[in-house]
Design a binder for these strands. Structure first.
Length: 459
RNA sequence: GGCGACGUGGCCAAGUGGGAAGGCAAGGGUCUGCAAAACCCUGAUCACGGGUUCAAAUCCCGUCGUCGCCUCCA
């Protein structure tokens, strides 16, 4: 079998993946901040991670996937000025910050299911790991990497000689070209580990700590929770490309300070979904959710298929034309799979080639091309079916479970169809066409097959 | 302003030194009384201009364009 090669952002290179511990793989995937719905751009990254998990499993590894839920509102900026999104959401809706978090957490899990993303093995909520985060901050403090300002405890990035290596940050350049108000921070790249509750203000979410009442900084939860569930150095850490320069850079800094490791052996990042040449954003432009697609009549798995057509490490431009193309392609794939009948044995040649593409840093576009080649091949139907189902372990399109929709057609329509058949048999084609026009006008379409006419609702 | 990425047929998108994958759309065809569905066939001087090389979509330089990060973000 071809070795599994994965692109590691840390080394900026393709490396052969070898687990740290036998055939067990630990993977931590940065999850959502649950102050709003996820949009389909967010979901693209979780789709990439799902493909990764499935590929690891196909390679025979036991995978433990941990995903965090950021349910505590960090500030909208690292300086002291921003608003807290959770608390703001609470004010806006009249619900508690806790209600908002649990509401959007459930919505998120629903979206994951609808895209057939495998459930993570461990969900970790930031608010359920406050002691762990405090412990880690204390550890960082003991090693001398912190300082205190009037609003919190900060990480002193100047103490780490290779701070920013993951992102190849030009630290000098950042200092010179900084556009943010540094406030009391000593250096632009320094970041909060613990924030104090504003004086005279009671937050819904706040906790006691050795430094005073407040709440954890944004980055510490991932370092603390990944250590708890996967240890201080584990196999793979994933997230969106936007996490490279700040969030993941800071996670590494914290873990290096406390444990001396770079947290994960592989750092992998999913690239953005673009919408009309702009990234999809929670704060501007169109906000497309899975539910939006459903409301417009799209099967969520068509979006999954759409994402398979691009490599995870390249931006993907979302267009409705592209989405419609995915719908058509998926629908043909499903019908073809269904008509192949019962599976037999897989074809080893196709399986090898498929594995080769998947193991080449998850080249799903190439892997999907093999699907079409397989369907067109001369192999017996049971072989093609079995091989296709094998592919679907990665593709996740639920090809085994799909059946043509059972449609109910009103009796009067069926009567018209019969009448048309009769007319056709008697070669009264003008009559037949007139009846078909009636049926079409009623919203149904007729397909004549060797087994007789088939009626279904018009799309 | 600083840093970075990208620009492949109408759309989406692989390919990163030596045959321009695949899907959708379009056109043509087979089948059909006609359609529909299905199947088959057809198409790209790889943004532009230089350079390196026996050979460049692929490497180097420049130009133009688009996007991202530097502020919460997948």
């Amino acid at each position: 079998m071809t070795p599994l090669m994965l692109y590691d952002t840390y080394t900026r290179s393709l490396r052969e993946f070898i687990p740290l511990h036998g055939s067990d793989v630990g993977i931590y995937t940065c999850g959502p901040t649950v102050y709003d719905y996820a949009h389909i751009g967010n979901l693209r990254t979780y789709l990439f991670e799902d493909l990764l998990v499935r590929a690891l499993k196909m390679n025979g590894y036991r995978v433990r996937r941990v995903m965090n839920i950021t349910d505590v509102g960090h500030l909208t900026s690292d300086s002291d000025t921003g608003e807290d999104k959770m608390e703001k959401g609470a004010l806006r809706t009249g619900r508690s910050a806790w209600d908002i978090a649990s509401f959007y957490t459930e919505a998120f899990r629903g979206d994951m299911r609808r895209l057939n993303i495998l459930e993570p093995d461990v969900w970790t909520r930031a608010t359920e790991h406050i002691p762990e985060q405090i412990d880690m901050i204390r550890c960082i403090e003991e090693k001398g990497f912190t300082y205190r300002t009037s609003d919190g405890i900060y990480f002193d990035t100047s103490r780490l000689p290779d701070y920013g290596y993951l992102a190849r940050l030009d630290v000098e350049g950042l200092q010179a070209g900084t556009r943010v108000d540094v406030g009391e921070k000593r250096f632009p790249t320094d970041f909060a580990l613990w924030k104090f509750s504003p004086p005279g203000q009671k937050r819904q979410m706040e906790w006691d700590s050795p430094w005073g009442v407040g709440f954890p900084g944004w980055h510490i939860e991932c370092s603390a929770m990944s250590e708890k569930y996967l240890g201080p150095f584990f196999d793979i850490h994933c997230g969106g490309e936007d996490h490279i320069p700040v969030h993941h850079t800071n996670e590494i800094a914290q873990t290096e300070a406390c444990y001396g490791t770079r947290l994960a052996n592989f750092w992998m990042h999913g690239y953005f979904l673009q919408l009309g040449d702009a990234k999809m954003s929670k704060s501007s432009g169109e906000f497309l959710r899975v539910q939006t697609l459903i409301d417009q009549g799209y099967d969520p798995l068509a979006y999954r298929f759409f994402c398979l057509s691009a490599h995870y490490r390249a931006k993907l431009n979302f267009t409705w034309e592209g989405m419609d193309g995915a719908v058509t392609a998926l629908s043909r794939l499903r019908s073809a799979a269904y008509e192949l009948g019962e599976p037999g044995e897989v074809d080893p040649g196709f399986v090898d080639r498929f594995t080769g593409q998947v193991n080449d840093d998850l080249n799903l576009p190439r892997a999907v091309a093999l699907v079409w080649e397989l369907l067109r091949s001369d192999l017996p139907a049971p072989t093609r079916k079995a091989t296709l189902l094998y592919f679907d372990q990665i593709l996740g399109l639920d090809l085994a479970g799909w059946k043509p929709e059972e449609v109910s057609v009103p009796a009067e329509i069926l009567a018209l169809v019969d009448e048309r058949q009769k007319a056709r048999k008697e070669k009264r084609f003008a009559d037949a066409d007139a009846i078909r026009a009636q049926v079409t006008a009623a919203g149904f379409e007729i397909e004549d097959t060797p087994q007789g006419p088939r009626v279904k609702p018009k799309k």
